[in-house]
Design a protein around this nucleic acid. Structure first.
Lengths: 357, 357
DNA sequence: CTGAAAGCGCTTACAG
DNA sequence: CTGAAAGCGCTTACAG
């Protein structure tokens, strides 16, 4: 004998009201043509009894679970909270639940995570792929959130434009030598961001790039970035490709007695949780997570509604690029035009002082 | 006519193999007594066809959805990634899926989130309650993760002991005046942490507490904490109740030219993602998320298995206290015994210099 | 406007 | 060891 559910079901409501289950179902869903009077009585009674519809039965009958899956490369990623929150909100608003899976570790784990979700009957998947992973369509519609340069991508922040905004900002402040600080050159996102920065430099500006993972492979985790040395070499701006790296740069500079933003500027990406609260506040470029989530969810649902739900396909042929927004918190630059603050020291001079000490 | 699922089902496998669905079901689940030979053939054929069991049907039949819900006060909380990751891992290992819900905003949203998950048929709920919220049993088993001083709590890090560890550490470094920096005195967690710190102070040590939200209500968001002034008053250690506040303290001190850890120590709580990468690394106390998640999930599943799944009840009468672990990254303190480093300046002297400048 | 009935895909006693 | 059958709770054409 199948396990009985504790709560009331349609049949119980129907019997106690002397009507058929069909009518109760119709009244509650508002679909069938039930007299408003009866419908009202039914709704009332259902509420009284604390009726909760069985999603399982509904899913079995209709073939739709009302659930989508969210696969993340690493939930511990600091960007994740905002993304998950935005996706959860967009999905909930559309009446869907969100099942999460962490593809931590390797690509195998990612595949397993996808399979687990499919087995749980998700109608579609939102995937933030692991670095340099190509999602070959799973057995349900998939929306990929990564970067425009990822094949099959659905929606992404316009990382390139974000980079250009940073370059513009630094140019306006009068910086000439920029050190870009990234983590890993394999990342599509980080590459787009550097590309954008470089493309936005003025002819008289120069940049070079420091990849932290590479540095750490040589000198060990947590090694110094040698930023004070860079300041001595004439760099006045440090453009990190993520706020996490920006924070590392900022604290290292401060520790070495280099005043930020008076002697050097630091910028980041992503507007992570800590960026507004540190001193000085971090100038950064933020992804519009709400819009990204809305687009991902709505494209996904559109595909689900159109196709039979179990066909695997990637959603969205051309990546939707969502603008990133520059948030200026550290306003002063060393050579800012019209910057007449007398307490500010010429960075070149100060740098040479540091050098001789 | 009900919507047909695209994939193969038990019946299709049964027909094509000339056996009954019951036998296929038994073979695949390994429960029934099916000859190993036939079972093998069935498994093979099922794999060939790419059979994926219908969770909906299984759930309907057995009354168990195989899904639990995770309700978070604010997914954007920086602590969330680690928690969610740990919960997801523990649940997945036990064969359960995890549905997320964000009770962002107010208590109403929390209640709605809980209801949504219950309607989706979760078998149990892991809830991290909003500040000062008491979870009155929902209509399914609930495990609460908060702090031991929250009524009905199931499992928590031992925040009090973590505080005592911080106090011990600061005492050993020779600090006498400690400024505790918290965010909100309404938080049970933060209160436990302060309590622990105070209880661990030696008789010759003194502490006072700064609540940031209170300060900001008076002076505006992002106002200075006035820490340099505190250094001048003789405080040498800043014990924040979260790494986020520690970071704020650290950067403010650095900006004001106070060397950390030479002139002042800064400690935090939670070992957030950025804590190991900043300079100097942050000394902090970490929650053992894996253990906390394991306990939450296993108590929850135990209750689910015992009781009929729809009864509302809180899991775990006495809170399980999981030890927190001190992570020392900033080792030097201003008055550390045997600390003969000549480059180190007496904090009081340096502070007075700052004062006259 | 309302009801009887079929069927989604599975599991589980029960009979053979 | 294997199969026939009931039933989980719902929705949806269809008939009245």
């Amino acid at each position: 004998m199948p396990t009985a559910r504790p709560g009331p079901n349609l049949s119980r409501i129907a019997t106690s009201l002397g009507v058929s289950v069909a009518t109760v179902s119709n009244a509650l869903s508002g679909k069938g043509r039930v007299s408003e009077q009866l419908a009202e009585r039914i709704r009332e009674h259902a509420a009284e009894l604390g009726y909760v519809p069985s999603q399982a039965a509904r899913a079995l009958r209709t073939g739709r679970s009302g659930v989508i899956g969210l696969v993340l490369p690493d939930i511990a990623n600091p960007l994740f909270p905002k993304l998950a929150q935005a996706i959860e909100f967009a999905a909930t608003s559309a009446g869907y639940g969100v099942l999460i899976a962490d593809s931590r570790g390797n690509i195998t784990a990612q595949t397993e995570a996808i399979n687990r979700l499919v087995e749980r009957g998700v109608e579609g998947l939102v995937i933030v792929p692991r670095r340099a992973t190509r999602i070959s369509a799973a057995s349900c519609p998939v929306a990929v959130i990564d970067t425009a340069s990822t094949p099959g991508n659905t929606v992404a922040a316009d990382h390139w434009q974000g980079g250009r905004d940073i370059a513009d900002h630094l140019a306006e402040l009068g910086h000439k030598r920029i050190l870009v600080i990234g983590n890993n050159p394999e990342s599509n996102v980080q590459n787009d961001r550097v590309g954008g920065i470089r493309s936005g430099l003025r002819p008289d500006m120069h940049s070079s790039t420091l990849w932290i993972e590479r540095l750490e492979r040589e000198h060990g985790t947590g090694c110094t970035l040698g930023l004070a040395e860079k300041v001595r070499e004439g760099y006045t701006a440090f453009a990190a490709l993520s706020d996490l790296q920006a924070l590392r740069a900022l604290t290292e500079l401060q520790r070495d007695g280099i005043a930020v933003p008076d002697m050097a500027s630091v910028t980041g990406f992503d507007d992570l949780i800590f960026s507004p609260v540190i001193t000085p506040g971090l100038t950064t470029v933020a992804m519009d997570m709400a819009t990204i989530a809305d687009i991902a969810i709505s494209s996904l649902l559109k595909t689900i509604q159109t196709s039979g739900s179990r066909e695997g396909m990637l959603v969205g042929a051309d990546t939707d690029r969502v603008p990133m927004q520059l948030i200026i918190r550290q306003s002063s630059g060393p050579i800012a035009p019209g910057n007449g603050d007398p307490t500010k020291v010429d960075p070149a001079k100060r740098a040479s002082q540091t050098e001789t000490s």
